[in-house]
Design a protein around this nucleic acid. Structure first.
Length: 576
DNA sequence: AATACAAGCGCG
DNA sequence: AAAGCGCGCTTGTATT
């Protein structure tokens, strides 16, 4: 009999969709063709009859293929996203011969744009020509998949890279799922916050009442009833006229001055920021229907962190968190990891002293207890300085104390900085490699080494070398933290999908066909997550969240004794 | 009129 | 008190 498929590659062939079963040796086992309109149904059947370890869907770009499935209520267990995997592998210095991958430039495309009415999705036929993005015909998909698989198999660390690609691809599934489910958002609570802070909703083109009052107070303090407050150069000149000699209008600098204009001006900036970034217009555009649906962009940051586009999902002010409200009969499980990056640093460097400081408590208190620095505030500022490359100020002064106490951890980031300054690349724990230096950067360095180099050439080269060193220093930590978070998400996603569905009568209709009846992730921000769940499953979900964090630690760091404690709460209101 | 850039501030 | 990493978004100004 035929071997079981390990993968199911999917791609287009003209108007039809082709599914190719691929064996472990990359050989083709079977091929079936379906009309585009029947594809979602077929996927649902295949997923429903899947084994414990189902074949992984292999497709060009999750965004392009998965949206239509989710709209039809179909969830898939696992996938391999060729576009995201290509980006990791072509840049990885673990891949000894990336020539073929790099030659396949058609796979270097940026993320697909989100589907809108103006830009129809995959299954709105007739729109395929002229599409930008990676290829999706079945032959190109199979060829790229084989290139990627062979590249991984030839490396010295296939296990780590496979884990990274699986985590990245799981993230791609989740990004679409969270977009489809949306973050439950209370218009009433949001409006209440806006009205309490800004006053009644203003007519278009005018400021809210509190903003107008502040503007009047500022103009009085400036002695200029016509002063312009929204143009930085004009505002700065007005400030200079009343003796506030700041060099910029930034909050930090203004706060230095003692003048009656300062307090209302700082408040004015705060309120206009809220009004323009997350005011009524934002509410209407992004969260009016009871869900906020940001577009997550997995792998959107070079370090492997996610980016986002639309609605500023990664910048939701804490002030508005209270507007995140569970549906009736549902609740939220909110969790974040305390001090993720230094914990990851302890584990990846094998620094048992730092891991001891991290164990079972606040890591910064642990550093104080270890005697490196006197206070928690010092510990935090020193650790951030070590991971970001601070050289001046309090932060820079405190770093040497950490270097003495945690030589392995500090050695890892110092080595990463040195590699970057020298023009080299660095790797995360699972093998994501930092970008090579740019031609401009190398040119700057070589100019400084030439006999005719000026002092300006040399200082410019030193500056760009240090800039790059700070980037690679942080890359290893930020990138490995992103990998830990992805492992956490992916494991939790599996656990949530294994939970039973709730009854139709208590469905969260706005969460869409795929998620209205089961606990689902609805928000992710670097080191924190929110799960929207039927209330009677909340305890089980909370346990799964904690268990997945422990699983992620083991998956990445094996038996190394490092804790990732969660701040975990079950609440109807994400602000609490 | 359209586009590019810088400042400023929100998040981790 | 505001440097040291990574982002997105809005606004005003400069450029074309």
């Amino acid at each position: 009999m035929t071997a079981r498929p390990r993968w199911r590659a999917v791609g287009r062939d003209g108007e039809e969709i082709v599914i190719v079963e691929v064996a472990a040796d990359l050989g083709e086992l079977a091929r079936r063709r379906v009309p585009a309109h029947a594809w979602a149904t077929l996927v649902a059947e295949i997923e429903a009859s899947a084994d414990d370890v189902p074949a992984r869907w292999v497709w060009s770009d999750t965004t392009r293929w998965y949206q239509a499935l989710l709209a039809a209520g179909v969830i898939v267990a696992r996938c391999h996203d060729l576009r995201l995997s290509h980006a990791i592998l072509r840049a990885s210095d673990l891949v000894t011969d990336a020539h073929d991958l790099r030659a396949a430039e058609e796979w270097d495309a940026p993320p697909s744009a989100p589907t809108t009415a103006a830009a129809p999705a995959l299954f709105d036929l007739g729109e395929a020509s002229g599409r930008v993005g990676v290829p999706d015909d079945i032959d190109a998909v199979l060829a790229e998949f084989r290139r990627e698989e062979r590249a991984v198999a030839e490396t010295s660390e296939p296990g780590r890279l496979r884990l990274l690609l699986a985590a990245e691809s799981a993230g791609a599934l989740l990004a679409e799922e969270m977009h489809a489910a949306g973050l439950p958002w209370s218009r009433a609570v949001h409006e209440e916050i806006l009205e309490r802070t800004l006053g009644a909703r203003p007519a278009p083109g005018t400021h809210a009442p509190r903003v107008q009052e502040l503007a009047a107070a500022i103009r009085t303090a400036l002695g200029d009833p016509a002063a312009s407050l929204d143009s930085q150069p004009k505002l700065l000149r007005s400030l200079h006229r009343v003796g506030v000699t700041a060099a910029s209008t930034s909050r930090w600098e203004l706060a230095e001055y003692d003048h009656p204009v300062i307090a209302p001006l700082l408040q004015y900036k705060k309120l206009t920021r809220l009004a323009s970034a997350n005011g009524w217009a934002w509410l209407d555009e992004w969260a009016g229907g009871g869900r906020f649906r940001p577009v997550y962009v997995p792998g959107g940051v070079v370090t492997g962190r996610w980016a986002s586009s639309g609605g500023g999902a990664l910048q939701l002010p804490r002030q508005l968190r209270a507007a995140v409200r569970a549906d009736p009969g549902w609740t939220l499980v909110v969790a974040d990891v305390a001090q993720l990056e230094p914990r990851v640093l302890a584990a990846m460097s094998g620094d048992t002293a730092l891991a001891d400081a991290a164990r079972g408590r606040d890591l910064y208190e642990g550093i104080v207890a270890g005697g490196a620095v006197p206070t928690r505030a010092d510990a935090k500022i020193a650790m951030l300085g070590a991971m970001y490359g601070a050289t001046t100020g309090d932060s820079g002064r405190l770093v040497p104390a950490l270097r003495r106490t945690y030589p392995r951890a500090m050695g890892l980031v110092d080595d990463a900085a040195r590699a970057g300054e020298a023009g080299g690349t660095v790797r995360t724990w699972l093998g994501r490699t930092s970008p090579a230096s740019s031609a401009d950067w190398r040119e700057t360095q070589s100019r400084a080494g030439a006999p005719e180099a000026t002092a300006a050439d040399q200082s410019s080269a030193r500056r760009s070398a240090r800039d790059r060193g700070r980037f690679t220093r942080n890359f290893v930590v930020q990138g490995t933290a992103a990998e830990w978070a992805l492992a956490w998400l992916a494991d939790l996603r599996g656990a949530l999908l294994a939970m039973p569905e709730t009854s139709p009568s208590s469905a969260a209709a706005a969460s869409g066909a795929a998620f209205s009846r089961r606990p689902h992730l609805c928000f992710f921000l670097h080191d924190e997550i929110i799960v929207h769940t039927p209330t009677d499953q909340a305890n089980e979900v909370a346990e799964a969240v904690a268990r997945s964090a422990a699983n992620a630690a083991t998956l990445l760091f094996g038996r190394f004794p490092i804790d990732f404690p969660l701040d975990l709460r079950i609440t109807d209101d994400a602000a609490k």
